[in-house]
């Protein structure tokens, strides 16, 4: 078991014929993901790598393949359009990898999805992976993961790989790892993913990697304090980031006291999360947490 995706997931890759889309579609397929179609307007009727049918529109692709999930690699100017097209075609899980989507495009598309049974992960995220289900819908290196019972959720890409690498290094496998994205506005929050991990019988504990900017970690702290029943270890990156500067991620900027690493760490500690003191200590902290539990 896992959250969001499993071996039954039927995925479409939007932008499958592009440079990044094709590279990562191949990596996902190699990992075991059931990629049933690709969509690139103007390339309908072709076969991707002689096996995956490519369609001009999401409607056709969903009708022909009964896909339920979409992985988006289209360039930033067209990403919101791709999300809306996936939603309109009846896709229930949309993962938008694209970085640099204009914020007002995200505002409109989030409003469009509101109240509908559709989950958007991202934009500007590494995607997600459920190692035990051999299902990877994202750009993470599959080989650092191993099946197990840790849930991982993070706003970052490579820092998530670092966390997973340290976990796998001490023999701790993962149920699912979800990168929710580094933008100011994203479709799925920490709380959304923590709720899923809370209800997943195959996730025993969680590693949460936050960073500076916004107050999503404080929302998570409130949820953890009131509802979360499993051990959780947390790291907030960016303790050394100066205020007012965007640190790579559009959402990683300190705009006030609550957006700092210290404030977020404090909130999580007060909520009962185990604090990972430095990025070098992810594995050790989890090991100590598990020894106590």
């Amino acid at each position: 078991m896992s959250i969001l995706v499993d071996s039954n997931t039927r995925a479409i890759v939007q932008g499958i014929t592009g440079g990044e889309g094709s590279f990562h579609a191949r990596a996902c397929i190699r990992y075991g993901t059931n990629v049933v179609a690709g969509v690139t307007p103007g390339r309908g009727g072709q076969l991707f790598d002689d096996q995956i049918p490519v369609f001009d529109t999401m409607n056709e692709a969903v009708k022909e393949t009964s896909a339920d999930t979409s992985l988006i690699f289209v360039p930033a100017p067209f990403a919101a359009d791709a999300i809306a097209e996936a939603a309109d075609a009846g896709i229930s899980l949309i993962i938008c990898i694209t970085e640099g989507v204009p914020i007002l495009d995200t505002v409109r598309v989030l409003r469009h999805l509101e109240g509908r049974p559709i989950r958007l992960i991202g934009p500007n995220c590494p995607g997600l992976i459920s190692p035990g289900e051999r299902c990877k819908l994202g750009i993470m290196p599959g080989n650092i993961h191993q099946p197990g019972r840790a849930g991982v959720v993070s706003r970052s890409g490579t820092l998530t790989y670092e966390a997973v690498g340290q976990l796998t290094g001490i023999g701790v496998g993962q149920s699912s790892c979800v990168g929710i994205g580094g933008d100011q506005l994203i479709g799925t929050s920490f709380v959304d993913v923590l709720e899923m991990f809370n209800n997943d019988p195959d996730t025993d504990f969680v590693v949460m990697i936050g960073e500076i900017g916004g107050t999503m970690e404080q929302d998570a702290a409130t949820y953890i304090g009131e509802h979360f029943r499993k051990p959780i270890a947390s790291l907030i990156a960016g303790a050394t980031a100066p205020p007012g500067k965007r640190m790579g991620h559009a959402g990683a900027v300190i705009t006030g006291e609550s957006a700092t690493s210290a404030a977020k760490t404090r909130a999580l500690q007060e909520a009962g999360a185990v604090i990972i003191p430095t990025p070098a200590d992810i594995g050790d902290t989890v090991q100590a947490m598990l020894a106590k539990a």
Partner: peptide, 27 residues
């Protein structure tokens, strides 16, 4: 993505989260 800070250990990293984490490790 480059932001100048006031220290002396130059760091080159891939990924924003890992880059922030690397700064934290240095500190």
């Amino acid at each position: 993505a480059y932001v100048k800070l006031d220290g002396y250990v130059g760091c080159l990293v891939n990924g924003a989260g890992l880059a922030m984490a690397t700064m934290d490790v240095i500190q």
